[in-house]
Simulated scan of single mutants.
Amino acid sequence: MSTLDALSIGALVLLGLILLILLLQSLRLRGIWQMMLACRTATRWARIWEMENRELRSALRAEKAHVEQLQGKLKILQSLLPTS
Protein backbone atom coordinates (compact mmCIF):
# COMPACT_ATOMS: atom_id res chain seq x y z
CA MET A 1 0.00 0.00 0.00
CA SER A 2 1.46 3.28 -1.04
CA THR A 3 1.41 6.56 0.81
CA LEU A 4 -1.18 7.89 -1.60
CA ASP A 5 -3.49 4.94 -0.84
CA ALA A 6 -3.10 5.42 2.92
CA LEU A 7 -3.79 9.14 2.55
CA SER A 8 -6.91 8.40 0.46
CA ILE A 9 -8.20 5.88 3.00
CA GLY A 10 -7.51 8.34 5.84
CA ALA A 11 -9.38 11.09 3.99
CA LEU A 12 -12.27 8.71 3.32
CA VAL A 13 -12.45 7.71 7.01
CA LEU A 14 -12.34 11.40 8.00
CA LEU A 15 -15.16 12.20 5.57
CA GLY A 16 -17.20 9.30 7.00
CA LEU A 17 -16.61 10.62 10.52
CA ILE A 18 -17.68 14.11 9.48
CA LEU A 19 -20.80 12.68 7.85
CA LEU A 20 -21.64 10.76 11.03
CA ILE A 21 -21.20 13.89 13.17
CA LEU A 22 -23.41 15.89 10.80
CA LEU A 23 -26.07 13.18 10.95
CA LEU A 24 -26.02 13.19 14.76
CA GLN A 25 -26.23 16.99 14.82
CA SER A 26 -29.15 16.87 12.40
CA LEU A 27 -31.02 14.44 14.65
CA ARG A 28 -30.27 16.59 17.70
CA LEU A 29 -31.49 19.74 15.95
CA ARG A 30 -34.64 17.93 14.86
CA GLY A 31 -35.35 17.06 18.50
CA ILE A 32 -34.76 20.67 19.55
CA TRP A 33 -37.07 21.88 16.75
CA GLN A 34 -39.83 19.51 17.88
CA MET A 35 -39.41 20.69 21.47
CA MET A 36 -39.63 24.32 20.33
CA LEU A 37 -42.85 23.62 18.44
CA ALA A 38 -44.33 21.90 21.49
CA CYS A 39 -43.39 24.87 23.68
CA ARG A 40 -44.95 27.27 21.19
CA THR A 41 -48.19 25.27 21.23
CA ALA A 42 -48.18 25.12 25.03
CA THR A 43 -47.58 28.87 25.23
CA ARG A 44 -50.49 29.49 22.87
CA TRP A 45 -52.82 27.36 25.00
CA ALA A 46 -51.58 29.08 28.18
CA ARG A 47 -52.48 32.46 26.67
CA ILE A 48 -55.93 31.20 25.70
CA TRP A 49 -56.54 29.80 29.19
CA GLU A 50 -55.33 33.02 30.83
CA MET A 51 -57.71 35.06 28.67
CA GLU A 52 -60.59 32.72 29.55
CA ASN A 53 -59.69 32.97 33.24
CA ARG A 54 -59.75 36.78 33.04
CA GLU A 55 -63.16 36.69 31.39
CA LEU A 56 -64.49 34.24 33.97
CA ARG A 57 -63.15 36.34 36.87
CA SER A 58 -64.80 39.41 35.38
CA ALA A 59 -68.10 37.57 34.96
CA LEU A 60 -67.83 36.30 38.55
CA ARG A 61 -67.28 39.84 39.87
CA ALA A 62 -70.32 41.05 37.90
CA GLU A 63 -72.40 38.16 39.22
CA LYS A 64 -71.34 38.88 42.82
CA ALA A 65 -72.27 42.54 42.37
CA HIS A 66 -75.65 41.47 41.00
CA VAL A 67 -76.23 39.13 43.96
CA GLU A 68 -75.35 41.94 46.39
CA GLN A 69 -77.78 44.24 44.59
CA LEU A 70 -80.54 41.63 44.79
CA GLN A 71 -79.82 41.02 48.48
CA GLY A 72 -80.11 44.77 49.12
CA LYS A 73 -83.45 44.86 47.33
CA LEU A 74 -84.61 41.82 49.30
CA LYS A 75 -83.77 43.55 52.60
CA ILE A 76 -85.72 46.63 51.50
CA LEU A 77 -88.73 44.49 50.52
CA GLN A 78 -88.55 42.54 53.79
CA SER A 79 -88.49 45.79 55.75
CA LEU A 80 -91.65 46.91 53.92
CA LEU A 81 -93.58 43.74 54.80
CA PRO A 82 -95.59 43.92 57.99
CA THR A 83 -94.25 41.65 60.68
CA SER A 84 -96.80 39.71 62.69
Rank of each mutant, 00 (worst) to 15 (best):
M1D: 08
M1P: 07
S2C: 08
S2H: 05
S2P: 01
T3H: 12
T3C: 09
L4A: 14
D5F: 03
D5M: 06
D5Y: 04
L7G: 01
I9Q: 09
I9G: 00
G10S: 13
G10P: 00
G10A: 15
G10C: 05
A11I: 04
A11Y: 04
L12E: 10
L12T: 07
L12A: 07
V13A: 08
L14A: 15
L14S: 11
L15N: 06
G16K: 12
L17W: 05
L17Y: 07
L17H: 02
I18K: 04
I18S: 13
I18P: 01
I18C: 08
I18M: 08
L19E: 08
L19T: 10
L20G: 02
I21C: 05
L22K: 05
L23C: 14
L24T: 01
L24S: 03
L24Q: 04
L24H: 01
Q25R: 06
S26N: 15
S26E: 08
S26I: 07
S26F: 14
S26G: 15
L27I: 09
R28I: 03
L29I: 01
R30V: 04
R30H: 12
G31D: 13
I32S: 09
W33N: 11
M35C: 02
M35T: 09
M36V: 10
M36S: 12
L37E: 15
A38W: 02
A38C: 00
A38L: 12
A38F: 03
C39L: 15
R40W: 05
T41P: 00
T41M: 05
A42N: 06
A42Q: 08
A42W: 00
A42Y: 00
T43P: 00
T43D: 08
R44G: 06
R44T: 10
W45H: 10
A46K: 08
A46D: 12
R47Q: 04
R47C: 01
R47V: 01
I48Q: 04
I48R: 09
I48M: 01
W49F: 11
W49M: 14
W49R: 15
W49H: 14
E50V: 02
E52Y: 02
N53G: 04
R54F: 03
E55C: 02
E55L: 14
L56I: 15
L56M: 12
L56K: 11
R57M: 12
R57H: 11
S58F: 06
S58V: 03
A59F: 05
L60S: 14
L60Y: 07
R61V: 10
R61M: 10
R61K: 10
A62W: 03
A62F: 04
K64F: 03
K64N: 07
V67Q: 13
V67E: 13
E68G: 13
E68Y: 06
Q69V: 01
G72S: 09
K73H: 07
I76G: 01
S79V: 00
S79F: 03
S79E: 10
L81P: 01
T83C: 02
T83V: 12
